[in-house]
Design a binder for these strands. Structure first.
Length: 290
DNA sequence: GTCCAGGGAATCA
DNA sequence: TGATTCCATGGA
C-alpha cells in the first residue's frame, strides 16, 4: 500500500481530543507529538492538527484517503448548525457544547460497533480498548505502516471458528458467550446487517439489535448513534448520563433511584431529534470534569 | 479488601 | 412491567 496524505483547511467543529476521547470509539491512540493514530476498515491513519490545518497521513485500501476521511469523519455534516440549535436549549447545554466543541460523530462500521459495545458492558474504557486490540491482533489482518504493525477489526467470518474459551482467554470475562452467540447469529443471517443499514425505521432496527446476545437498551442505542446507522434521536443512558441528567435537571438525592424512562422522556422533550448529540456533549463534559 | 466500570440476562415480586 | 442479583476482570 502506498502512503497517502490529505489536508483539510479551516474545518470547524473538529478537535482530535474531543472526537477520539468522547467515548464513541476505541481504536485511536494519542502519540507523543499529540497526534492520533487509528485504524478503521483497512485504513491506518495518523492525524495531526496545526493552526487551521488538519493533516491526515496513512495507508488506505481504496487508495483514496480523502474520500475515506470525508466519510469516516462525517465531514459533510454541519455541526455548527447542530451546536447553535442545541445551545439555545439552556445554559447547561451551552456549557457542555463549549467544552466539547470539536466533537464529531464518526461513521463507524456497524459490525465493529456492535461487537465493541457488547464488550463495553459493565467495563471501563481502557480495558475495552485492550480487549478490542487483543481480538484484532489475534484474528484481524495485519497492516504495516511506518515499520509498525496494526490489525484490522476481524470480520464475523474471521471469528467463525473462535471458541468461547478462546474469547475468555483474551480477557472478555462474562461477555465471551455473548460475543460468540452474536457472531454466529450474524453469520447465520438471523440479523442481516445490510438490511439494518437500509431500514429507515429506527424502532425496527432497534428491536433487531436487541435480539442479539449482549445487546440491551443502552448498547443498542450506542450502536444506533455511533455506527453508520447514524440515528441522532436515540439517547444512550449509562451511569454517567444518568448522573449528569440528575445533577442538571432532575436533582434527586439518590441518582441511582432515577428511572431510565424518566431520563428518556426528559431527553426527548428537551433535545428531540438531536438527543444523541446532546447526550455526547453532556457525557464528555461530565466525565472529563469528574 | 473494596469499589467501580459507557449493562445484560435471569429471576422474582 | 419493575426491581434484584450475578456475571469476569483489572485498576484505583
Amino acid at each position: 500500500m502506498k502512503e497517502e496524505k490529505c489536508i483539510l483547511k479551516d474545518q470547524k467543529s473538529f478537535k482530535l481530543k474531543d472526537i477520539f476521547e468522547c467515548g464513541q470509539c476505541f481504536r485511536w491512540n494519542e502519540q507523543e507529538d499529540g497526534s492520533y493514530t487509528g485504524i478503521w476498515k483497512e485504513n491506518v491513519v495518523n492525524v495531526k492538527q496545526k493552526n487551521n490545518e488538519i493533516i491526515f497521513e496513512g495507508v488506505t485500501k481504496s487508495g483514496d484517503l480523502e474520500k475515506e476521511i470525508k466519510e469516516y469523519f462525517d465531514i459533510e455534516r454541519d455541526y455548527e448548525a447542530i451546536k447553535i440549535k442545541l445551545g439555545k436549549i439552556d445554559d447547561n447545554m451551552k456549557k457542555s457544547i463549549e467544552y466539547g466543541e470539536g466533537i464529531r460523530i464518526l461513521n463507524q462500521d456497524l459490525w465493529e460497533t456492535i461487537i465493541s459495545f457488547i464488550i463495553s458492558a459493565n467495563n471501563n474504557i481502557p480495558r475495552i480498548k485492550g480487549i478490542i486490540e487483543r481480538i484484532s491482533k489475534a484474528y484481524g489482518k495485519e497492516i504495516k505502516y511506518k515499520e509498525k504493525s496494526y490489525y484490522t477489526f476481524p470480520t464475523a467470518e474471521e471469528l467463525k471458528d473462535v471458541t468461547v474459551e478462546e474469547f475468555r482467554k483474551l480477557g472478555l470475562g462474562f461477555r465471551d458467550i455473548r460475543l460468540y452467540e452474536t457472531t454466529h447469529m450474524i453469520l447465520e443471517n438471523k440479523v442481516n446487517l445490510e438490511e439494518l443499514q437500509k431500514n429507515p425505521n429506527t424502532q425496527e432496527v432497534r428491536e433487531k439489535l436487541l435480539s442479539l446476545s449482549g445487546v440491551g437498551p443502552k448498547v443498542a442505542d450506542c450502536i444506533l448513534l455511533f455506527s453508520t446507522l447514524k440515528r441522532f434521536e436515540v439517547f444512550p443512558i449509562d451511569v454517567w448520563v444518568r448522573r449528569v441528567m440528575n445533577d442538571l435537571y432532575i436533582k434527586e438525592n439518590d441518582e441511582t433511584k432515577v428511572s431510565k424512562k424518566k431520563i428518556e422522556d426528559l431527553a426527548n422533550e428537551k433535545f428531540g431529534n438531536l438527543a444523541g448529540i446532546a447526550q455526547q456533549y453532556l457525557f464528555y463534559w461530565r466525565r472529563e470534569i469528574g
